[in-house]
Design a protein around this nucleic acid. Sequence first.
DNA 1: GTCTATATCGGGATAGAC
DNA 2: GTCTATCCCGATATAGAC
Lengths: 206, 206
Amino acid sequence: MKTKERIVLVSLELFNRYGEPNVTTLQIADELDISPGNLYYHYKNKTEILNELFNRYEGQIMHLLDVPDIEISLEDHWLFLHLIFECISEYQFLYKDLVNILQRYEKIRTKFKKILQKKIEASHKICSSLRSQSILIATDDELDSLCQNIVLTATYWSSFDIIRNGSGEHQIDLARGIHQVMSLVAPFLREEERQDLLTMSREYLS
Amino acid sequence: MKTKERIVLVSLELFNRYGEPNVTTLQIADELDISPGNLYYHYKNKTEILNELFNRYEGQIMHLLDVPDIEISLEDHWLFLHLIFECISEYQFLYKDLVNILQRYEKIRTKFKKILQKKIEASHKICSSLRSQSILIATDDELDSLCQNIVLTATYWSSFDIIRNGSGEHQIDLARGIHQVMSLVAPFLREEERQDLLTMSREYLS
DNA sequence: GTCTATATCGGGATAGAC
DNA sequence: GTCTATCCCGATATAGAC
């Protein structure tokens, strides 16, 4: 594999493990067994690495958030959440130091806000679809709050989980996160689907 | 006012505004129009200042979380949330760089986990009280999820709000945060109280 | 208690040889 | 493309005078 690519991958790993602000370029170089000079040959500074990583994240998540205009089932919603959570988990360093990173990098901040907006829209689209099928029952206001809550929970689940359970090399409990989001939706579901969800949840968590 | 006290207060202000990792001891001294040497006379390092601030936060929030063993009304719940949100807002720097700070300071991490645990318990106590009065209807599982969601939302509302609306000196929209938490509770309320809540929400947000 | 001056250290980044 | 050596700078922290 090309060195340039290895740099990105190892940086991602270290950022995720130790937090982006705590990882130095020297550490990255060390981990790769290359010299710092070499690293700077491929990327002119640390920000460039961060940008590269963010762009990859952006590409992935924006792609996922392109929700098709079709009827969506509860299972689809579940799967959708799963993909989103996986993507977030892959780039968890962003979420660990979110405010900090967004404060220091104007460009990333603007883009991240757009992603957040799109997340809310996607959530809206899905919930609206469920509502139009009468699977979900809610007023417009309730739907708005619900979608915001979904996005908030999805965004911060990783941090929340790390704080409560994390010690060192912590694997984020995605299943529980999805469960948590689904529990936001549950109260608005038609009786039948609420039961289905309960069953799905139990299976999934065990 | 004594210099030592001024240092804590100005530090809190700067931490809240720029994020703790981005504030240097020199900046703090400058803001106070004292020399860095003087600052180090009062606190032997930056960590000491952080500890002092965290202890104050801990004292305040732990006090608030001592929920009395009496019947609790929806209005009480609202007020309770209000006090919690105000306290969090006062020490928002902690929440802005939560993972980072907890990663770097073992002691704070341990204490923060306890606070989080106590928050969930307090939330549980309140919701249980509402349930025992039949104001709130939920199964045990639903109650557990609900309380976790409440704490998660309360914990991260400030960050979420900053990211979406913040630009520089952003005042956190506490009212909207409380509304958001209440919207988690709403679906579980008895019809009558759900209407009350709706009315309260509208008044409060306008 | 407060100041000025300074030591120390670590991280980001560059120059130039190979 | 890669290395070694080095520079630069900003942040923490200390020493010692006032």
